[in-house]
Amino acid sequence: MLKRSDAPVSDDISAQPLFPLAATDLVFADRGRTLIDNLSLTLDGRGITAVMGSNGAGKSLLLRLLHGLLTPTSGAIRWGGNPLSDEVRARQAMVFQRPTMLRRSAADNLRFVLNHLPRNERDRRVEELIAEAKLDHAAATPARLLSGGEQQRLAIARARATEPEVLFLDEPTASLDPASVHAIEEVVRTIHADGIKVIIVTHDIGQAKRLADDVVFINRGRVAEQAAAAAFFERPATDAAQAYLEGRLQF
């Protein structure tokens, strides 16, 4: 179930655009339960996309399927017409709800993903990323001793160090205090301004309003609604989305 896709790789895939992303008739079932149910979705490479929906709707699963951490039971995922492959995934990065911190210093967590660079360049890049993440005071601190917000900023910096074209964020601000949420949203805006497509799962309606250009609303493993953010929040087209925004929808 957790195996990487064995799909064939197109020639010279690294030069081809990743978008549009097209997921067609995706199904993901686990232990007899269909968790993603004939989901189809098309995304372009612009803006910040918020994936919303109630608990258990399948948002995080969808991110893992799109990034190739899970293999769909059936259906197809195409990035710029190409199937998911190691080459495609090398152009993406993902930050998880609970950031995985290596048992090393904050700076060494960044060095870990930059080991292909010459030493001088690597050290310079680590300094830049540490500064951007506002972690100058904590570069030598063991990463697991950082606060929740600092850990998440470090995780985002580490993802950014891989120079992705797409960044998946799976509820990056869940259980963080308002100041940490604000700091992370600033980082997300900077990343987006640098031309990186951001796909963020969030439960925070305020955050989605602040960040998102468009919203994909998932309900019971399907895309119930996909719309520009302003339109979605003003006039949700489905009863489920309306109920979700009013805090009435339960899975």
């Binding site: 990487r4 893992r64 990034h67 951490l69 190691d86 995934r89 090398a90 993406q92 990065a93 993902m94 998880f96 995985t100 290596l102 993903v113 891989t162």
Partner: peptide, 10 residues
Amino acid sequence: EYDELFRSLG
């Protein structure tokens, strides 16, 4: 603990 991160990083 590390599995998803390492697979994400390829």
